[in-house]
Structure formats: structure tokens, C-alpha cells
Design a binder for these strands. Sequence first.
DNA 1: ATGGTAGGTCTCCTA
Length: 261
Amino acid sequence: MKIITWNINSVRLRLPLVLDLLAQQQPDILCLQETKCPDDHFPHDAFDEAGYAHRAIRGEKGYNGMAILARQPLYDIRHLNWVGRQDCRHLAATLENGISIHNFYIPAGGDVPDPATNDKFAHKLEFLKELEEWSRDQADQRAVLVGDLNIAPRDDDVWSHKQLLKIISHTPVETDGLNAVMAAGGWQDAVRQMIPEGLLYSWWSYRARDWDAADKGRRLDHIWVTTPLRDQIKAATVLREVRGWPQPSDHAPVVMEMQPS
DNA sequence: ATGGTAGGTCTCCTA
């Protein structure tokens, strides 16, 4: 079973790229974030034709928005509201084999890493706290958590650990918070299980003149599994080359292959 | 130290 997660930054504008990725990678499951697409405008027909007849979607106008596309049926499609808001940052479904897929888009958090003066950063930290509490109940489940978590937890998940310590996505309060989420749920980082050492990124800013040459990336996108699934991971990596496709998202897809169960 | 680009959409917000 192959699962891909991708922050697509508008599913309508990027539809040709999504279809190319599906054709090239043939995943069983594709989880999208930042679809920026109300549900009544979702491009259902294109995904039907591509063979992804089973879909869970949850969008809103302009911001956020989640989707899970699958070649197999999706059961118990659901979401939770986080930090008392209705924004579309979580979508979950269960597969025929009983594995639950949780797709997340954690708030980016704005620019100033001070929750007292920056409401967006306070929101991000509250979201992490709720994720930690929720994760306690996931540890004994067969579950996969994917998404744009907007945090690069390890020193080698950013181009310069020292230069990013006060930059939101790599501040200690965030990386500690994400590590607490992982510990609470027994979550295993599938990509770092397969690529345990070395610099690795999944996001490169649009603002760089040459993202590939500058290579000032961060690993913001993740695939985790609970402990009961950890021995089923066969492969996991970042599809970096997709960041270089025409009119790209600023995020690259992250892929994991598991033994069937 | 600063500003750089992208997407959606009602003029600026979010990333």
C-alpha cells in the first residue's frame, strides 16, 4: 500500500500536476492539504477518470482545505474541530483493512514567535497541545498520520539549525511540542525510519530566486505510523523533483509504502 | 537587515 501526502496550494490550479503525480506514482491513497476549494467546486470528474473513485473532501473558501483520494473504499469519514474552530485542518477515514488515515494541516503560525503578541502562533501552540492529548488514544490503534505539520522537528530537517531557531517552524517550543505529540501517540516517523541521517526537506520557499540551487528547505511534511504498524514500513521518501515541475506547489509530496495487512 | 513569490479574492489575508 502506497500513501502520498502533498500540500498542493490550490487543487484547482494544480489539478494537472496532481493528475501527473497519480499517473507516475500510482498511490493507493493521496492526502492533500490547502486545497483552497469549497466542496461544491471540487474537481470530482477528473479524479473519477484517474481511477480515484473514493474521496473524502472538506474544503472552505480561500484557505485551508483537505482531501483524501483513494482507489479503495473509505469508511467512517470524519473530522475533529481543533482549538474550538471550524477551519478545515483535519480529515480522517478508515480503510477496509482497519487502518485509519488522519490527514492534518497544522497552522503555520505567522511570523513572530511570541504567543503573547501573535495570535497565529498562540493558535499553533494550542493546536499542538490538543494533538498531544488526542494522540494518547491513538497509540494502540492501527493509524497513519500524514500532513503539512508546519514544523521541522530535527536539526537536520532545516538548512541551518542555528539560523532558524527563532524562525517559526523550527523554534524550540514547536519542536518540543511536536516531539511531545509523537511520544504521546507512540508515533513513528516513517521517513526518518527509512532515511535516518542527513539533511532532508519537503518545502522550499517561493521567494528564493533559485530554490534548487539555494536549497534552503525545511521538512514540514510528515508521515507517521503508530507502533503496531512500524514493522510494515517498506519505503518512505520525499519526491523532491516534483518541486521543480512547472507552476509547482512550494511543497514536495512525501510517500510511504507499507506491507499490506 | 531586508525583501523576496504565490494563491485566492474584494483590496489585503495567509503562507
